[in-house]
Structure formats: C-alpha cells, structure tokens
C-alpha cells in the first residue's frame, strides 16, 4: 500500500526529474565551492536575495559570507525537491534552496538539524 502512491507519482511524472535534482545539488555545491575558493562575489550571487541581504547586513556580502565558517563542498548524500523548495544534504552540511527566475538559489546553509524544530543555520534570510 505504501509502494502504490510512489508508483502512482512516478507514473504520473510527478516525481522530480533527475535533471532538476542535479540542478539543485549543483547550485548548493557551487556556492560552497565558491566560499572554499574565497570567491565571495560568486558565493553571494548564488544566495537568495533576502539571504544575501541578511549576510551583508554589517559588512558587504562578498566579504561577510567568507567569515561564516561554512563547511567546504562534500559529497551529496541526498536531494529533496518539492515545488519551489529543495533541500540538499551533504556529508557535513545541509542547505535549503528555492527556485528563482534565474535558477536555484541558496536560502540557508550551514544548517544543523534540531529534530522537529527548524534547522539551525549559520546563513539564512531575514
């Protein structure tokens, strides 16, 4: 019975296509790679506007994002995508992304699970 809905979803083509999942995880990894490469401008380009604004509240975003102690890009463990929102789990980090006109952007990064409560994230929107 539990298998049936998953099968129906697949048959209906409702499950996210692999290309969409790859686009999401690619955006997450690119942002963390930019931070690891000390390319703050690129990293901020890959953040959602509200997140970039929050990060750049005191110092300019390209500088501030490098001081957030985000982990480097690790292997992608899993990607979940529902509508306009997605979650990418890496070996040592969890990121949340949303879809914008110009692709997937990181809404929150450096996130730690708190069980049923929202993730605690080093970087997130206001």
């Amino acid at each position: 019975m539990i298998v049936l809905p998953a099968a129906l979803l697949t048959l209906a083509g409702c499950g996210p296509a692999q290309s969409r999942l790859d686009a999401v995880s690619g955006a997450a990894v690119r942002m963390l790679q930019a931070v690891a490469d000390h390319d703050g401008s690129l990293a901020c380009d890959l953040l959602a506007p509200e997140t970039a604004a929050e990060v750049g509240k005191d110092d300019p975003c390209p500088k501030a994002i490098l001081d957030e102690n985000l982990p480097g890009p690790a292997a992608v463990v899993g990607t979940e995508l529902y509508g306009q929102w997605a979650q990418v789990r890496l070996a040592d980090d969890t990121l949340f992304l949303a879809h914008f006109g110009d692709g997937w952007k990181v809404v929150a990064a450096g996130c730690t699970s708190r069980g049923e409560r929202p993730y605690d994230c080093r970087v997130k929107g206001g």
């Binding site: 409702c14 979940e80 529902y82 979650q87 929202p118």
Partner: peptide
C-alpha cells in the same frame, strides 16, 4: 482520497522546506 494524500504530502513538504524543516514520507 489517495490523490489528496499524494498531493498533500508534496504540498506539506514544500511548506516544511520553506520553514527549514525536513520533508516527511507519505506513510
């Protein structure tokens, strides 16, 4: 009702992610 549950879990999970929470399975 089955369609409600399938669409419902997807809509619920979209909300979960927007609140920076984990998505859940259908069951």
């Amino acid at each position: 009702w089955l369609a409600q549950s399938i669409a419902g879990v997807a809509a619920y999970n979209e909300q979960q992610l927007s609140r920076l929470q984990d998505p859940i399975g259908w069951s």
